[in-house]
């Protein structure tokens, strides 16, 4: 390649970058405005958590006339023990649930998506049907089951189901992902003499990474925010997860402590947000390194 052609290529590349820059700027402006609109409720909540309680509902604007950290200080200690206890509890449950789901759902999904066996379609249908169950009718029989095993007020009723692939959503998610992976890859492994376990472990699981990350993110968020199941199984306040603790701060009849509720809700958002921010980087890297070659 001559210097001249190299120069032309560079110049046109720069022009392209400039054009793209302008287009991106417009995109950013549009997206920025949209982000603001979307996040207005949250911003209001953040501002409100720094307002004294009596101003939150009376002073609707975004600029507070008075600032205070009381909501955080009081909220942190509002329930006899520092809020860190509830964070720790939520973390235990969440990490356990993630591990359980990754383990059990990936095994199940691989079998359902790739292995050939009788009744495969039936199994898939059952999985899908169990996504359709409204949880409220299952709660009572399940509770009776776990209370017979004397597991109420432990984290087992929240975790055992996760290790048993009962979050059919994720099984289904992974099945769909595996189906988008070209068959040639595992056929090649098959020809090389790998059995199903090696194929799963060395070929499919690495390629499933985006689905695994998605499962992790969703499990984290759903478990972190889940209220009804922990409420029923965790009776003792020291076992509460964050949402149960938050709920026990507010009285449904009066709305005292809105400021504290906002402050603690925001704090409880932080781990999920941080996790999401980190995990999504992971998601990009995962795809960048594995690619789909």
């Amino acid at each position: 390649m001559t210097t001249a052609t190299l120069e032309t290529t560079r110049r046109s590349a720069r022009a392209a970058v400039r054009r793209r820059g302008r287009r991106d700027l417009l995109k950013h402006l549009g997206l920025g405005a949209f982000v603001l609109l979307m996040l207005y409720p949250l911003i209001w909540m953040i501002v409100s958590s720094f307002k004294p309680d009596h101003l939150i509902l009376t002073e609707p604007g975004l600029i507070p006339s008075e600032m205070t950290f009381d909501n955080f200080a009081e909220g942190w200690n509002a329930l006899n023990r520092p809020f860190s206890v509830f964070f720790a509890n939520s973390l235990i449950v969440t990490v356990g649930a993630i591990v359980g789901n990754l383990f059990s759902c990936s095994l199940t999904a691989f079998a359902l998506a790739r292995l050939e066996f009788r009744m495969r379609k039936v199994y898939l249908a059952i999985t899908l049907v169990s996504v359709m169950l409204p949880m409220h009718v299952l709660v009572i029989p399940q509770y009776i089951f776990f209370s017979q095993l004397d597991l109420v007020n432990t984290y087992y009723p929240l975790l055992i189901p996760k290790f048993l692939a009962t979050d059919a959503f994720f099984v289904y998610l992974m099945v769909q992902f595996i189906r988008t992976i070209p068959r040639d890859l595992d056929r090649a492994a098959w020809i090389d003499g790998s059995g199903p376990f090696r194929t799963f472990w060395y070929v499919i699981l690495p390629l499933m990474r985006p689905a695994l990350v998605t499962t992790t993110i969703f499990t984290f968020i759903w478990t972190w925010n889940d209220f009804f199941v922990p409420l029923i199984y965790l009776t003792s306040p020291k076992m509460f997860t964050v949402p149960v603790a938050l709920n026990s701060m507010v009285d449904s009849e009066t709305q005292s402590g809105v400021g504290m509720l906002f402050a603690m809700s925001l704090l409880s958002l932080l781990p999920v947000l941080i996790f999401f921010a980190v995990a999504q980087k992971q998601l990009i890297r995962g795809i960048a390194t594995t690619g789909l070659k």
Binding site: A111, L138, L164
Partner: peptide
């Protein structure tokens, strides 16, 4: 051969189906 392996892969799912899903489902 795959059928055998599949059932190993599906052990957690089977347990979950029987213990956590099917029994409550039939009950309801």
């Amino acid at each position: 051969r795959q059928g055998g392996a599949a059932h190993v892969f599906l052990i957690p799912w089977w347990l979950g189906l029987v213990l956590v899903t099917a029994v409550p489902l039939v009950a309801s």
